[in-house]
Structure formats: C-alpha cells, structure tokens
Simulated assay, not measured.
Amino acid sequence: MKELRDRSPAAIGFYPGNKQALKEMIKECYLSEFGPKSLPKVNPEGPRNIIACVAPHAGYYYSGPVAAHLYRAIANDGKPDSFVLIGPSHMGYPGASIMVEGNWIMPEGRVPVDTILAKSILKSGQIILDDDSAHMSEHSLEVQLPFLQELYEDLKIVPIAMGMSDWETCKEVGVGVAEAIKKENANAIIIASTDLTHYGMMYGYAPAGRGPVEKVIKWVHDTDGKIISKIESLDAEGLLKLVRREDLTMCGAAPVTSAIIAAKELGATKGIKLQYATSYDIRGSSDAIVGYLSAIIIK
C-alpha cells in the first residue's frame, strides 16, 4: 500500500513564508499598477464559464500582479470544487507525473489532493505516472496555491508536472484530464502554469542582442504575442509547433498545450488574454527578462 505523504513547501522565497506577510503581498499584487487594482470577492452565483486558464509562476515580486488578474477572474466566475494544476517540471522529470494522495503544506494551511479526481485522471490518461517525487521540489504549481487559498477555504487540487513532451503525450494528458472531469462530473478548473520568453545571459538566450533595451523588449513582446495568439485561438498543436520550431524559451508549452486540448474536449470556444507584462515592465531590471501571462479559456 502506498504511504500517504504530505508535501512540504519548496518555493518559499517566491512568496513570503510568513502568513501575514504573504497576505499583505497578495493584496499588493491585486492593487499594483500592473494588477487589476481591486481586491477579489468570490461570487457564489458566478456563471462558471472558465474551463481552463494560464497563470505565471515567478516570484510574486515580479509576476504576482499579472497572476492577480487571473485569480480575480476566477473569483468572479464562481466556486469550483477542484483545480487541476498542470505545470512544467523544472527539475527534469520526464513525461507527466501526478500526485494522487496527500496534502500540500502551505503557510495558510494544508491543501488536500482531490484523490477521486486524481485517480480518475490517472486511469484515463494512461501515459501519466503516479509519482509524488516529481512534485516535491517543483515551484510551478505551488506558487498558485496562496492565491487560491485566499479565495477558497475548502480548496482541493490535482497536481500534474510535465517534462519536455511531444504532441502525442500532450494529447493523451489533455484528453485524459477531460475524460476524467466528465466521468466524475467534476466542477473543476484547469490551471496551466507557465512563464513565456526567458531572455538574457542568465538563460543563454539573446536572439535580438543585448541592447538597446527598447529593442529587446519589443522583440520579447512581439515573440510572446505570437504565443498568446495561439492560446487565444485555442490552437494547441500550433502552439507546440511554434515553440519547438522557433526554439522559444516558454517553459510550460506542454502544460498549456495539454490544457487547451482538455478545454476543447470540455466545450471551450475561445481564449482571452487578461494581462501580459514582462519582468522589465514591472520592475525595470534588464539583466534577465521574462514574459508573464494571465489568460482564461471559456465556454
């Protein structure tokens, strides 16, 4: 019998580990110049039109204001029972790995895994591995939880981490997630976690050169604009081909591709960009520039 394991935080530093400081930082993200400039309030009568969405996963100091747009939209949309979180494995785990049991320990309390839905996804998406270890040191999903905990007291999640994946893997993950949500009649939202272009010497990636900064920022905005266009048109295969063909540094191409596939299986009709900004736009540092996106995929 598999031992039930709790997962300890691995991303303290991306957000404050102190509960009160964390609450204050999330509030600042909402009220930021690049945030929605208002605090969210869950609408219990919301239409529940959001099927899937895209969220950034950098430190809150950088990407938090962009993420805040998404979480305000989720609050306005109503009250899901579960969130299927799909993010990239920065730790190098291959394929797709799910955690089907346990709790994620966070500064604001435990977040349980939705075991019923997770096991159903594992059964439907047979390419997915039951592997807790892929999640233990990964930050891309963890950084979504404080925002969600501020909105929902009885939060449940299904975490899936994906390494570099081909189209067939993304398709099997996406279809598997959709089939399980339909089978369990789950009131769930899929969150695909990704940052977009990673530009600069830190990433060994500077196709537009090292300056002037205005030229670099235009190149990043234009390049990320092509990615966003694929997401808005729900062109999952086109997105993956674009990233591979042009050797782009979007870290969560596979999770977003899988989320679009799942959303279309569940009746999605369009994607909507909520906010886009780079780390340079928000903080002014040009040493390393990363693009951040919040987007929703709706019925």
Rank of each mutant, 00 (worst) to 15 (best):
K2P: 15
Y15S: 06
P16M: 14
L22D: 11
I26P: 03
E33M: 14
F34T: 03
S38F: 09
S38V: 13
V42N: 10
N43I: 04
N43D: 09
P44T: 09
P47H: 08
I51W: 13
Y62K: 10
G64W: 13
H69F: 05
I74V: 14
V84L: 03
V84M: 01
G87A: 09
M99N: 14
V100D: 02
W104Q: 11
M106E: 15
V111M: 09
V111P: 13
I116M: 15
L117G: 01
S120I: 03
L122W: 00
Q126T: 15
M136G: 02
E153Y: 01
E153Q: 11
M162A: 05
M162T: 02
W167M: 09
A178M: 07
I181F: 06
E184H: 01
E184G: 00
I189S: 07
T194Q: 10
D195E: 07
H198Q: 09
G204E: 07
A206V: 06
A208G: 06
A208T: 13
A208Y: 05
R210G: 07
I217F: 10
K226C: 14
K230E: 13
K230H: 12
I231L: 06
K241N: 14
R244D: 11
D247M: 12
L248Y: 12
A254Y: 02
I261F: 01
K264Y: 02
K270V: 00
G271H: 09
Q275N: 11
T278I: 08
S279C: 03
S279T: 12
G291L: 05
L293N: 13
S294A: 11
I296C: 10
I298A: 04
